[in-house]
Simulated scan of single mutants.
Amino acid sequence: MFRKMLGAAMAVAVMGGASGADAQEVTLKVHHFLGPQAPQHAAVLAPWCDKLAKESNDKLKCQIFPAMQLGGTPPQLYDQARDGIADVILVLAGYAANRFPRMEVFELPFMMTNAEATSRAAWDYQETLAKDEFAETKLLATFVHGPGNIYTTKKKIEKLDDFKGLKLRAPTRQTNKLLAMMGASPVGMPVPAVPEAISKGVIDGAVIPYEVAPAIKMNELVKHTAETDRSYNALYTAVFLVAMNKAKYDSLPADLKKVLDANSGGEVSGMFGKAMLAADAPAKEKMLASGVEINVIPAAELDKWKKASDALDDAWVKDMDAKGFDGKKLLQSAQDLTKKYTK
């Protein structure tokens, strides 16, 4: 009789323990480099965190730390996820130069069709061809921003020759090379550093998408914006990573892992890309309302820009070959995946 009672008590204790584990509440520290007004915060991370909370009955929550509030610099964010300084980070892959070489393919000139399709393509590509580049963390999403534009303080960009002599900020290694091939002097820096650099005359402008421009006061700092014909592939884009500390993910109870898994991957990457693209229109309106002149570079001129930068694709392929990969296959796969998702 005593053994039966002891067994029943132990069973209740075990069940209670399991129930307690399932009832565990977790708050993720989410760290990124942009301000809270930026769409990466307001239209990507905040709604994503709200969704996690709703689908977990408030058991999985986020505390978002924008603008590097947990310390460090933007290029250190990925290591912060690896080391557990933050549980989840959002960072530009290009800020860690040479760390994700195969993912750079999406940052080559005129690669992107639209942000949603290219974001989905980037996820599938890394899953099949570059997954090991992210072995130090649990990758949750990859996405890109909308078409990059050229913002200048004085000189209007209308044709290829207009780039000559300009010092322009670029976000990634490939975009730096692109600007150099077009005649500009590229200056690499994270986007939060752009306003001060323009104000002090260190640079004559920058290449960024519309969505982040008002957040860094570009509507107050520049006079001209050159936008590429939207029927043409984008001049450039940049790849964002949302990555999680592996130990933190592994420590989650099964029910919360399920919620997180349902809000990670290709569909979520596409959703993030779509949100970024949607943020372009209102940001453009703010630029116009501030008196910034916007001109569109027609397809015929873009053909010249593409021809001037075509060698970048070949150089990237050779670089991949030298690293032991099939560069041509990687490039073709990225192009095919992007085409697959483009409607």
Rank of each mutant, 00 (worst) to 15 (best):
A23V: 04
I89H: 01
K159D: 05
P171A: 12
Q335N: 14
V222Q: 01
V14S: 02
A254K: 14
S251Q: 11
P190Y: 08
H224T: 14
V239T: 14
A180V: 04
G324P: 14
L288H: 08
K306I: 00
N233M: 07
V202E: 11
V191F: 13
K217F: 12
K304H: 10
V194K: 04
A300Q: 11
A289W: 14
Q335M: 12
K284L: 15
Q80A: 13
E104I: 02
D336N: 15
L129T: 13
L45D: 11
W48P: 05
P209N: 09
A21G: 00
Y232K: 08
Y125E: 08
V12P: 03
V30F: 06
T225L: 09
D321Y: 07
F163L: 04
K59Q: 12
K307N: 01
D83G: 05
L221G: 09
K329F: 06
K306M: 04
H41W: 12
Y341W: 14
V105D: 04
I64V: 15
R3I: 14
L139D: 05
F33D: 12
Y95S: 11
N57P: 04
A262E: 15
L139F: 02
L288E: 15
M182E: 12
P195V: 13
L160V: 13
E55I: 11
M320P: 04
L140E: 09
L34F: 15
N57W: 00
W48F: 07
G146C: 12
P109G: 13
I157M: 15
Q332P: 06
V292G: 10
T342Y: 13
A308M: 01
V259K: 01
S251T: 06
A115F: 04
A215N: 15
A215K: 07
Q332A: 14
I157S: 14
A67K: 05
I208C: 01
V242L: 05
D280R: 07
L140M: 14
A130W: 05
G35K: 10
L302H: 04
V212M: 06
E55N: 10
V144R: 02
A18Q: 03
I216Q: 13
S333D: 12
G84T: 05
P47G: 15
V317E: 04
F100V: 09
A215D: 15
N245V: 05
W305G: 07
M218L: 15
E267L: 03
M103Q: 10
A226R: 07
V239P: 03
V242M: 09
A93L: 13
L178N: 02
A93I: 07
F240Y: 15
Y236I: 11
A226P: 08
M10K: 01
Q174V: 00
N295K: 12
S199M: 06
K306H: 04
D313F: 10
A122F: 02
D336Y: 11
K54R: 13
G183C: 07
G273K: 00
G291W: 03
K164A: 09
P147W: 04
A170P: 00
N233H: 06
M287I: 10
A46M: 15
L330W: 03
Y125D: 06
L256P: 06
A215T: 14
K318N: 13
D87C: 09
H32Y: 15
K223G: 14
A254R: 09
A121G: 08
L330H: 00
F272H: 05
K200G: 01
P186F: 09
Q37M: 07
A299D: 10
W48V: 05
P109V: 13
L337R: 09
A215W: 01
L28I: 12
S56T: 10
T137G: 01
L90G: 06
